[in-house]
Design a protein around this nucleic acid. Structure first.
Lengths: 340, 340
DNA sequence: CCTGGAAACGTAACCGATAACGATTGCAGT
DNA sequence: ACTGCAATCGTTATCGGTTACGTTTCCAGG
């Protein structure tokens, strides 16, 4: 056995090649001022020892690392889909990606996680970060792009056209004949939650249907938060004939509750979600939802961040992407439609 | 404005609190030997400056970082599903997760990426790593768990019962009456690809059907690799009546080719995949496949790694998880079934 | 032969933190 | 008052690299 598994460092290479670590560094980074013969010697030593530079050590001293970061507090379908888009945008770009996710020691929805992670990374490791569904405005030495930012943020962000998406979804229900339409809202610090509720109200107003505040449940985008809300809505003496949930994760929970209460969907209850996560297509019945191409969100965010880091961004830095309604089988005309 | 966005370091805190950096470090890490009054002063300074310790700097000096790593070369559905399981296992465990993904500068399937990434991280940043579908055996200072390891590896790993899964899949086709069954293999350095091919052969042998080598296409798990292979198989004068693809990604490409050639599925051709990625449920027709719970793979791998790092692992370190056949609508009896 | 300047390379400071170690202080015991 | 131990805290080496700067070498030009 040549070597066990001791970590081979730059000074090991230097010793073997008979040069200083400074010279090794120059060779590794292709800097000027090393003779061809020395380069060859160093290269040989590197090869022989199987040396790889430590990302950590070099990022400590360097300003540019060519690593972009993504921080997220959970890994549900939303983030996973976003991630695919980010990876696509970064493919062959020269930037590597580091995703930092915490283990939720402080509780699943501890405020400020994104700031904590961001400062821990952006001090040195990354050239810039993407933050998914943050809790608040963040400050950072390096550029930050938010996916689904907080309300009123003016920082760079990428978001879906939540207002139009939600309006379309509710219009779809109205068009089917529904009049009592429940709504399960998202975490209200997020602009998306706000806009989706606005869309809900706007569509109702447009149709001349008064908003009944007792039909609105205050969720937080966490699927579990929807369960008690759905139960409360559906156990009423006068339950809504349709529920629009601000996210698919929550909408799927509504389906669960409906099943639990013996309600048939879409017979007794129509359900519409928002996001179009993969699970929504495979559930039974298929969930009618608003597609916001999370893949695209990730793709555009990564593209924006890349340009911000290299300093070549000129487009507006608040991107809004279109949505589209995907009609599946969780919606139908209400039983009492004829009555209206 | 109090402070712009200069990175605030430990010495800033020390200066404000009027102590040395060592004392700040002790306070931050809750070490012994600091008076209550000093602790309070330091805490105040930390609060006031909004200090967060740098992950990079501390990991350089520390031995334990409480960060686990995951390296993957791409982010298709497989890895995304695995990730959800990993996150679940790490939730509230005290371990954070860093995912490192490269930008494919060296081509999508550049051999040795996992070793490169591993050495760059494991020197200091992480206490251990999960490697997804590696290219070869890896060496590392810290524990490594492979998901879907290379053939013949004896290192810690988690894998699905690919042999049984593949056998079951082919038996399903045989049971429907198929006799000419094509196979599209995966990247053959992986144990999973090998086992799935073994299962294919075993099932045929058991049924007394001779293996026709010309019905076997050599893919590499990359969906794109399946397209030309499927075309070649289906354009033959004597095409197979069914195709078993070693991954869902490839199977979906087979469906695409079938559509392109005007073949109806399952009328003219039955297709079976392996993995059960979310897309397989939502495609039309739904893909019959072997479920290997990628979520579970990730969950178990993280659990194993956690124990290896803390040194409390006692179970065997090569886990094999069961699979199950999911029958959807891409399989049916062949038209010529009556003839046999 | 001497000088100037660039090329090649080493030395050491530095990045932000941790930890071994030593120094100082406070206090109890005698 | 003196000793001894423990508590508290600063000093400094260190992690693995990068880089400013200084030194040496070498060659061309005068």
């Amino acid at each position: 056995m040549i070597e066990a598994n001791a970590p081979v460092t730059m000074s090991d290479v230097a010793r073997v090649a008979g040069v200083s670590t400074a010279t090794v560094s120059r060779v590794v980074n292709g800097h000027y001022g090393v003779s061809a013969r020395t380069i060859a010697r160093v290269r040989t030593a590197i090869e022989q020892l199987g040396y790889e530079s430590s990302l950590v050590a070099s990022s400590l001293r360097r300003s540019r690392t060519n690593v972009l970061g993504l921080v997220a507090h959970s890994f549900q379908s939303f983030t996973a889909e976003v991630l695919k888009g980010v990876m696509k945008a970064l493919s062959r770009s020269g930037f590597d990606l580091i995703i930092y996710a915490n283990s939720d020691l402080y509780g699943s929805y501890s405020e400020g996680w994104e700031q904590r992670h961001l400062t821990r990374l952006s001090g040195t490791l990354t050239d810039g970060c993407i933050v998914v569904t943050p809790w608040g405005e963040v400050r950072s030495r390096t550029p930050v792009v938010a996916i689904d930012p907080v309300r009123g943020s003016t920082a760079p962000s990428v978001t879906a056209d939540n207002l139009v998406g939600a309006t379309t979804a509710v219009e779809h229900l109205l068009g089917l004949g529904h009049r009592r339409i429940g709504f399960i809202a998202g975490r209200d610090s997020l602009a998306s939650a706000w806009s989706r509720e606005e869309g809900y109200r706007a569509a109702l107003a447009e149709a001349g249907v008064p908003v009944d505040p007792t039909l609105i449940g205050r969720g937080d985008f966490n699927p579990e938060s929807a369960t008690p809300l759905a139960r409360a809505l559906l156990r009423r003496a006068d339950p809504p004939s349709a529920i629009f949930a601000a996210s698919d994760g929550m909408a799927l929970k509504v389906l669960e509750v409906a099943r639990e209460l013996g309600l048939s969907v879409p017979g007794d209850l129509s359900v519409v979600g928002f996001d179009n996560i993969p699970e929504s297509a495979s559930t039974e019945p298929g969930l009618t939802t608003v597609d916001q191409s999370m893949y695209q969100l990730g793709y555009e965010a990564a593209r924006m961040l890349k340009s911000l880091v290299t300093g070549e961004w000129d487009e507006p830095n608040q991107l809004v992407l279109p949505t589209s309604l995907v009609v599946r089988s969780s919606t139908a005309a209400p039983k009492s439609a004829a009555r209206q």
